[in-house]
Design a binder for these strands. Structure first.
Lengths: 189, 189
DNA sequence: CGCGACGTTGATTTGCCTCAACGATTGTGG
DNA sequence: CCACAATCGTTGAGGCAAATCAACGTCGCG
């Protein structure tokens, strides 16, 4: 039983102790070393992963052959490639540990069984999805409305602790700018 | 009873005829003239809307005072401002009919009651949310990976019929470029 | 110690914006 | 039903944010 996960779930739905235990019995812990992969492009995604400890990046390789970071995941985030997972088609994403990371794996086939046993889980994952979507939407709006300097400052001020954990070239990729340009932005304070 | 909506629902979940009728009894039809608003910035969003006929845009006013289109909605799309709806805070979005549009309004308070009466609806709206999120994610990836010309061509080829229904300045806004620049792109074929 | 990964700096280039002006089309009130 | 205004798309000149390319310094690690 993972108490972090129990507390996380309790923020969204009420489960009995038995339901909580049943849910968690379907989860498989895994530990990743830095730079190890959860998923590599070409594979079909079969699971969602709850990050109990550590830091993850999702990225793909664009036409020019360079890495584009889609987003990051940290403690208490669920991460997966929803596109591949839900359509069961090969993924174009790579999901990789940035540092030593502990995950709980939830197989999608198991989740589908669990929905029948614990209907409240439908709500849990609906709410998670809603919040994830709103975050994605906000990011789109930032990209439309802010220039690179403003995006950098917004990121730094809203994720002060997290910004320390990732190398600058990854942040640059996430923001959609080059490492060189991020470097000049930082000079301007 | 709206047969389009029934068919739409059946693509995702199975409802009995009684459940379908109950669900639809909670929906209120509305007709919008061109340029009428479903929601204006500052209001708190209370409902989701199923578009039975017509075309909608969601946009906000950025710092410079110009309209930025977030996305469009057409027949058989659910549209709302999820951020405002779920947090019950004032919206920064405007939702407006581009042409004469027929909607079915589903109040969020009603939906919350309905979740208890028809648990399968949890699944319906979870699946809708998942698909909506994947679409948002794809759009982010396009913005990172494609230049304006490629984004324009992608939009035109994947939405050939829809592109005819909206003025070019709205498409330019959606793509994140100026109408002037879109005009020069079109010259290049 | 030596190599590779990471960050920085500067010169040059470019994709796209801004601003201004001008047709074409649409719509509306007299 | 016409006249005028408003809306929409186009064109061109000039400017800027950010990319590209190349080179170099530094640090951490095998």
């Amino acid at each position: 039983m993972n108490s972090h996960l129990s507390a996380y779930i309790r923020r969204y739905i009420d489960l009995t102790e038995e339901e909580d235990a049943l849910f968690q019995s379907y989860l498989t812990p895994a530990t990743l070393k830095k730079k190890e992969y959860v998923l590599q492009q070409g594979e079909t995604c079969k699971s969602r992963y709850f990050i109990s400890q550590g830091c993850i990046r999702l990225y793909y390789i664009d036409q020019k052959g360079s890495e584009q970071i889609v987003h990051f995941g940290v403690e208490h985030w669920w991460i997966t490639d929803y596109d591949s997972l839900l359509s069961q088609t090969p993924s174009h994403l790579n999901i990789q540990a940035i540092e030593k990371t502990e995950l709980l794996e939830l197989k999608e086939t198991a989740l589908i069984q669990l929905y029948a046993k614990i209907p409240a889980l439908e709500r849990l994952f609906r709410v998670i999805m809603e919040r994830t979507y709103v975050a994605c939407q906000r990011r789109l709006e930032y990209m439309f409305s802010l220039n690179s300097e403003q995006m950098y400052e917004t990121f730094i001020t809203s994720n002060p602790q997290f910004a320390q954990r990732i190398p600058q070239y990854m942040l640059a990729s996430y923001l959609g700018i080059t490492p060189e340009y991020l470097s000049t932005l930082r000079k301007l304070h």
